[in-house]
Design a protein around this nucleic acid. Structure first.
Length: 307
DNA sequence: CTCCAGGGATGAT
DNA sequence: ATCATCCATGGA
């Protein structure tokens, strides 16, 4: 299989895919297998160059269907692949400028240094929303398991480089299942919320694509009206699905970091005041700051210990 | 075995 | 407006 070379400076593929923002990429050998939308992808990194194999996709098909002239199917061009990869992995983000905008404190500096090359990627909106509805009170490893179960049960089976991958089921597919079927994916009580939200998206009562035009506050409002979506999940979807780089999700890890590092031994620090502090303190690229703090905290394993 | 996880909805103060 | 409780599941 021939690899398409995509230049990628200042990028760490493995860290990005293992940083708890996306959950379906599976490592095998030198690279990762997965999907970007309805395309199947194999991707590996060698220094500042990515090796990519890309198949599927509906752009070519759609063009043929709407064209009077029947065109012969063409393989994906290197230019198309490069464009898709650059967009998905946000290779256009200037990490230098982003890091330069962070507050200069010890905690942030350490996290920034540790997470060199970690990028906030651009995920398909529905996939991102559905996955994070499933994420509540779940460890990253288990979210991955749930994601895989839903793909295998309800997604479309595909193949890339002799590897099986499954696309994420669209909203109308999940809307057509049942809470009982969803629970078989290990969803537990989250199944009800996911089903309800899938129905609203499938019926276009919630039009995820059109919400791209909304300012942050209104987008967050709309997201929070969906079943199973509160402030935290909404911020994750804004950050990972809507390119809202300022969005600052506060989960148990981030809350711990904020309390221990930024408000040491102070009581009466409410969650609301933490959110307000974070929104003001970390600046216009707060979502990146948050992701670096999150990943650094998780990787350096600062679990609570008695004593 | 126990502990806890990228929380949200609901009902009681 | 804050606060407590419940919700299922399985990795560590």
């Amino acid at each position: 299989m021939k690899l398409i070379a995509v230049p990628a400076v200042d990028f760490d593929l493995e860290m990005t895919l293992n940083s708890g923002q996306v959950f379906h990429w599976e490592k095998a050998g030198e690279g990762f297998y997965g999907t970007i939308g309805d395309r199947t992808v194999y991707i590996e990194q060698r220094g500042a160059v990515l090796g990519v194999v890309l198949e599927g996709g509906d752009l070519r098909r759609r063009r043929e269907e709407h064209s009077n002239v029947r065109k012969r199917p063409r393989p994906t061009t290197a230019a198309t692949a490069s464009e898709l990869i650059r967009h998905y992995f946000a290779l256009d983000h200037s990490l230098d400028e982003i890091c330069a905008s962070f507050p200069r404190d010890t905690v942030m500096n350490k996290a920034c240094d540790f997470c060199r090359g970690l990028r906030i990627i651009r995920q398909p909106k529905w996939e991102c929303l559905a996955t994070f509805i499933c994420s509540s009170m779940k460890q990253v490893a288990h979210i991955r398991q749930i994601s895989r179960a839903m793909r295998e049960r309800f997604g479309e089976k595909k193949e890339i480089c002799r590897h099986e991958v499954y696309s994420f089921p669209p909203a109308d597919r999940l809307a057509g299942t049942s809470e009982h079927e969803l629970r078989k994916c290990g969803l537990g009580y989250r199944a009800k919320n996911l089903l309800a939200t899938a129905k609203r998206v499938a019926l276009r009562e919630a039009n995820l694509e059109s919400w791209s035009a909304l300012p942050d506050v209104e987008l967050r409002e709309q997201l929070c009206q969906l079943p199973g979506v509160g402030a935290k999940v909404a911020n994750c979807v804004m950050l990972f699905g809507y390119e809202r780089i300022k969005a600052f999700p506060i989960d148990v890890w981030i809350e711990r970091v904020l309390r221990e590092k930024y408000f040491p031994r102070k009581r009466k620090v409410t969650s609301a005041s933490l959110a307000e502090f974070a929104a003001n303190y970390f600046g216009t690229h707060g979502g990146y700051a948050q992701q670096y703090l999150f990943h650094h905290a998780r990787m350096t394993g600062k679990r609570r210990r008695k004593g």
